[in-house]
């Protein structure tokens, strides 16, 4: 059973954060409209980059090796996530649970050794 009352401060924190961010976004907009400084023209709204119109899309292709690093991160992130319930439940699972996790870590260690040997972790 979980006492959700423990989460009330977090909920209050979220509410305060939401209120403050709304103030920061909407207050300047409202003030500028009320004081009459809100006066957009085509020149003001055009995109602008160091005195020139933007030359190209801001997105550009980059090396696929970043993707490989991200995938490896996901896998070891999941491994760490599996470690938490294992660590607190050893009273219930005992030696079989411990061995299970060691085999699991061994499986991923094979992958790590492979990545290391192939050179996937190297950056030129």
């Amino acid at each position: 059973m979980i006492d959700l009352g423990q989460y009330l401060p977090i909920l209050l924190f979220l509410g305060v954060a939401l209120a403050i961010s709304c103030v920061f976004v909407f207050l300047p907009m409202g003030v500028s409209r009320l004081t009459g400084t809100h006066n957009p023209t085509a020149e003001k709204l055009s995109e602008y980059e160091c005195g020139f119109p933007a030359f190209e899309e801001p997105r550009s292709q980059f090396d696929v090796r970043f993707y490989l690093v991200a995938i490896l991160f996901i896998i070891f992130d999941l491994e760490a996530a599996f470690l938490f319930p294992w660590a607190v439940s050893l009273d219930f699972t005992g030696w079989s649970g411990w061995t299970t996790m060691m085999i699991f870590i061994g499986e991923l260690a094979i992958g790590l050794i492979y990545a290391w040997k192939v050179g996937a972790l190297e950056w030129e």
Partner: peptide
Amino acid sequence: IENIGALLYSKYIFVFEAAGLILL
């Protein structure tokens, strides 16, 4: 979290190891 661990590493051992193999 203790409940999850107690089930995952006792009753569902083989599913868990299969998950490890899939990750590999």
